[in-house]
Design a protein around this nucleic acid. Structure first.
Length: 501
RNA sequence: AGCGAGGUAGGGUAGCCUGGAGUGCCCGCCGGGCUCAUAACCCGGAGAUCGGAGGUUCAAAUCCUUCUCUCGCUACCA
């Protein structure tokens, strides 16, 4: 049975979800839905990363327990998932999910059995205020960039992971595209990084330094597992690593990890080596998106321009937000979010162009054709359908390469073709002179509407379902998009996208 | 500093690999048309020395060299 396993990264819970998180969720979801609808039995895992020291510190600042902070913020991420329509199959909460804890410890044990985990003294410049180690380069004038105090040298015995041992094998996996990294620039970055040599890294912290928060190292109560080691393993947890061996065998290896550019190394180097060590198959690809600015500025609390995806979805609708994120923001590069641009996209492109095309077609069939229309010999209509069909094929090709924005742009072209076709043939005039010719135009337009509905489903599932519902259909595989139905019978239809303001 | 990516009309992009009239798309702007439709839609127009300079070529946004500017990565940091 075909399968497709896809993951999002699991966000930290020390802050609320922002539009950047939404971008990643929506990208992953669009790919997952595309696969699902085309018969690939997609399975999507997401979750929240809760075992970080930052959870404790943020909770302290708020005067609540870490458990409470994790619970409430994790819920916000779940809320955001429904707000943007992320159709996940597993949601891993790393601090409460028993399966996850079990998986992490099993995974740790496997790496340990391979002889890749050992104890070593680790010393570094430690800022008591931040409760973090800093590298020389991060300090400003030898002082902590946050607190402007001089960090002290602290030594601690930690467990280390033998990353160095896997240098060559990781390089081979990346260079040989056993693990494919998209886009190419990121792949080059990773290769460059590996070339500079891989050093072992610390995979545990003392319980004191972690404030007792986090998962214990198996057989050592004085140490907790480093958050990265823990968070990455959530991908296995979601797939059923220790819960359901059959499921795991079917799902793993992951087909795509969708991540942000800031965490490429952890996935493309650390994670790959960890999996090698544990004797688990490698993920097939890693899709790296960029960061989102807001009105041209970096999002930050101090500027106060952090965009809340839940609120924005409530205001403009899930489909419009998904449309904007997927089309206006490049799949791979940084992009900008502005509420004005979102509103313009909704009003002009979704309502004006797409929604209006659907509406004028179906309304006309309703008022002049008695609500239904049968296939007939077509001449120009056939050409128009073929032209749109070519675009549909291109969309499929773009999706296969995860070119989401381009694919969506192509779909919108079909709506353009439809509007143009209507305008140049004027069926509202034609119907009085040549009823058959008018029917041909409308039949072709209805075919385009259906095509759009099927193609657009991964991007805007809600709108697609409504669109197809007007003709009594449900979303289906892309192969069906180019079929020409024997007839259309228009059910009641409403306004697909309402303009705002 | 090293490595990587990029600089195309007011803004955002595609085209570059596999040279062939600046070719396309979205937003914005100007003019016209239409009235089936969500004051939507359609057509036309203005606006670019395709970052600068050299070179290869009958021909360069596209290939080569160089300069310049922007951005990313350079280890324990979501």
């Amino acid at each position: 049975m075909a399968k497709f396993y896809i993951t999002t990264s699991i966000p930290y819970v020390n802050a609320r979800p922002h539009i950047g998180h939404a971008l990643e969720f929506v990208q992953a979801d669009a790919i997952a839905r595309y696969k699902k609808i085309n018969g690939h039995g997609a399975f999507l895992t997401t979750g929240t990363d809760e075992n970080s020291l930052k959870s404790v510190i943020s909770a302290q600042k708020l005067g609540i327990s870490a458990e409470e902070l994790c619970r409430s913020n994790s819920k916000l991420f779940k809320d955001m998932s429904s707000a943007v329509g992320l159709s996940y199959d597993a949601f891993v909460r790393t601090s409460v999910d028993k399966e996850h804890m079990k998986t992490v410890q099993e995974f740790w044990a496997k790496c340990s059995e391979s002889g890749d985990i050992y104890k070593k003294k680790y010393g570094g410049l430690y800022c008591v205020g931040c409760e973090l180690f800093y590298t020389e380069g991060e300090l400003i004038g030898g002082l902590c960039p946050e607190h402007h105090t001089k960090p002290e040298f602290v030594e601690e015995e930690n467990y280390f992971f033998r990353l160095s041992k896997y240098e060559k094998r990781v390089m081979d996996a990346i260079e040989g595209n056993a693990v494919q990294i998209l886009p190419q620039e990121r792949r080059a970055e990773v290769i460059n990084f590996i070339k500079s040599g891989l050093e072992d890294f610390s995979v545990s912290r003392s319980v004191e330094r972690a404030h007792g928060w986090g998962l214990h190292v198996p057989g050592d109560d004085t140490q907790v597992i480093y958050v990265w080691f823990d968070a990455l393993v959530s991908y296995l947890t979601g797939a059923g690593f220790s819960r359901d061996k059959d499921l795991f065998r079917r799902l793993w290896p992951a087909d795509i990890h969708v991540i942000g550019k800031g965490i490429v190394r952890f996935h493309a180097v650390y994670w790959i080596a960890m999996l090698m060590s544990a004797g688990v198959e490698l993920p097939k690809s890693i899709l790296v998106h960029g960061y989102v600015t807001v009105d041209g500025q970096k999002m930050s609390k101090s500027i106060g321009n952090v965009v809340d995806p839940i609120a924005i979805s409530a205001k403009y609708g899930q489909d419009a937000v998904r449309y904007y994120l997927l089309k206006e923001i490049s799949t791979f590069q940084d992009g900008d979010f502005s509420e004005k641009a979102l509103k313009d996209a909704l009003n002009n492109e979704l309502a004006g162009n797409l929604g209006n095309f659907i509406n004028r077609t179906f309304t006309f069939i309703g008022s002049r054709m008695g609500g239904s229309i049968k296939e007939l010999e077509m001449d120009e209509g056939r050409l128009v359908i073929d032209e749109a069909g070519k675009i549909a094929a291109e969309v499929d090709g773009l999706m296969a390469r995860c070119q989401l924005g381009m694919a969506l742009m192509k779909i919108m072209e079909i709506s353009n073709i439809g509007n143009r076709y209507l305008q140049s043939n004027e069926p509202w005039k034609l119907a009085d002179v040549d009823e058959r010719a008018a029917r041909e135009v409308l039949f072709a337009c209805a075919t385009l509407c259906r095509m759009i509905g099927i193609l657009v489903y991964p991007f805007m599932p809600g709108a697609a379902e409504r669109m197809l519902g007007y003709i009594g259909e449900k979303p289906s595989g892309y192969g069906k998009a180019v079929e020409i139905p024997a007839s259309f019978s228009i059910k009641e239809h409403g306004i697909l996208f309402k303009k705002i303001e």
